[in-house]
C-alpha cells in the first residue's frame, strides 16, 4: 500500500465572482521512502496541494472533492484536532523561507522541545537531549551550545537546517518540503538538498518536494509530477520525464533549461503564459500554447494516460 494517496483532489476558492478551481482532479501516490518532485510554474497548484495534504489550506480555500489517504487512512476530512496530531508527528513540513519560519522570540531549543513534547511523552530533559541530537544530525556545529541560541543568531542556511530538524523531530513518515531551497544561496541549496536526501535515506522518510527548480528535482527525486494550471500534466520516473518528456508542456519545460554545452543567444521558451484561474480554456488547459494542438484538445479534457514510461494527460497518447 502506498504511504500517501491523493485521488481526484479538487481545491476551490469561493469568491464573489464565482468559484475558482485552483487544483482540479489531481491524483498521485507516494511510496514509503520515495521522493516525489512536484514542479510547475507559480500558480500551478503545487503549494496548495501540499497545504491540502497537511490540512492547512488557508480559508476560503477548501477541498471540494477527492480524497487524501495516509497509510490507507483518510485524512482530508478529519476534525482539526485529529489532523493536528498527524501534523508534525506523521507528516512534517518544511517551508520556503527559513528566515520567517522560526518564531524570533523563542530559542531553537525551545521550539524543538515544544514540538517534541507535543507529540511524545519525553520529559523536558530527554526532549532537550533529543533536540541537541537533532541539531547535530542536521549538521549544526556545536549543537550543545547552539540549542539555546535564537533564530536571529543563525544564518539562512543554518536556519533551514533548524527548520528541517523541526520537521523530522518526531520521525514523520512523510515530509512536505515546499520550495525548501528557493530562498537560499546556490551553494547552500546543494547542502540542504544533500541533507534532505541523507535524512530521507537514513530514516526511510518519504518526501514530497515542491519546487520549480528542475536541477533540484533531477538530483533528488525518484519520480516527478509536472503540474500545469491546477492539474497534473505528466507524472513518471525522474529520468524519463527529464530525458524524454511526453507531454508537450513538460517537454517544453525541460527544453527551456539551458545546457552548459550549448551556445545559444536566446533561451528556449514556451510561447504565452499559464492562464489565470478565471480564464482556463475548455479542453486541455495547455491547448492555446501547445505546438501539437489538434481539435480534440480544444473540446475534451484529457486524463492521465500511459505514455511510454510515464503517464501524461495528453490526447497524443490516446489509444483507439
Amino acid at each position: 500500500m502506498a504511504l500517501l494517496e491523493v485521488e481526484h483532489l479538487r481545491i476551490e476558492f469561493p469568491t464573489r465572482r464565482g468559484t475558482l478551481v485552483a487544483v482540479d482532479d489531481v491524483s498521485f501516490a507516494l511510496a514509503e521512502g520515495e521522493v516525489l518532485g512536484v514542479v510547475g510554474e507559480s500558480g500551478a497548484g503545487k503549494s496548495l496541494t501540499g497545504n491540502a495534504i497537511i490540512g492547512l489550506l488557508e480559508p476560503p480555500g477548501r477541498i471540494a472533492a477527492g480524497e487524501i489517504r495516509l497509510s490507507g487512512r483518510r485524512i482530508d476530512n478529519l476534525p482539526y484536532e485529529e489532523m493536528r496530531k498527524i501534523r508534525g508527528k506523521q507528516i512534517g513540513a518544511v517551508f520556503q523561507d527559513p528566515l520567517t519560519s522560526l518564531n524570533p522570540l523563542y530559542s531553537v531549543g525551545q521550539q524543538l522541545i515544544e514540538t517534541i513534547q507535543t507529540h511524545t511523552d519525553l520529559t523536558p530533559t530527554q526532549a532537550r537531549t533529543r533536540a541537541i541530537e537533532l541539531l547535530a544530525e542536521v549538521g549544526i556545529p556545536g549543537a550543545e551550545r547552539r540549542v539555546d541560541h535564537y533564530p536571529h543568531q543563525f544564518s539562512g542556511g543554518m536556519r533551514q537546517r533548524v527548520v528541517i530538524a523541526l520537521a523530522i523531530c518526531v520521525n514523520p513518515r512523510l515530509i512536505i518540503a515546499d520550495e525548501p531551497t528557493t530562498a537560499l544561496d546556490v551553494s547552500i541549496q546543494a547542502q540542504i538538498i544533500a541533507l534532505l536526501k541523507r535524512l530521507c535515506r537514513d530514516h526511510g522518510t518519504a518526501i514530497m518536494l515542491i519546487t520549480h527548480d528542475m536541477g533540484v528535482i533531477a538530483e533528488t527525486a525518484d519520480r516527478v509530477a509536472v503540474m500545469y494550471a491546477g492539474r497534473v500534466a505528466e507524472i513518471g520516473p525522474v529520468r524519463s520525464v527529464i530525458k524524454e518528456a511526453r507531454h508537450p508542456y513538460s517537454h517544453g519545460l525541460m527544453g527551456s533549461i539551458p545546457k552548459i554545452s550549448d551556445s545559444k543567444d536566446r533561451l528556449e521558451q514556451i510561447e504565452g503564459s499559464m492562464p489565470r484561474l478565471t480564464e482556463i480554456p475548455a479542453g486541455c488547459a495547455f491547448n492555446p500554447r501547445c505546438p501539437q494542438v489538434f481539435d480534440r484538445c480544444r473540446v475534451e479534457r484529457p486524463d492521465l494516460m500511459d505514455a511510454g514510461d510515464t503517464r501524461a494527460s495528453c490526447w497524443l497518447y490516446a489509444h483507439g
Binding site: 497537511i54 492547512l56 482539526y80 493536528r84 496530531k85 498527524i86 501534523r87 508534525g88 508527528k89 512534517g92 513540513a93 517551508f95 523561507d97 520567517t100 519560519s101 522560526l102 518564531n103 524570533p104 515544544e114 514540538t115 507535543t118 507529540h119 527548520v163 523541526l166 520537521a167
Partner: peptide, 17 residues
C-alpha cells in the same frame, strides 16, 4: 498571518500553544 505561525501549526502544536 506570519510564516512562523503557519509553521507552528504544521508542527502540530496545539491551538493554545
Amino acid at each position: 498571518r506570519a510564516d512562523y505561525i503557519k509553521f507552528a501549526r504544521a508542527r502540530g502544536l496545539t491551538n493554545r500553544a
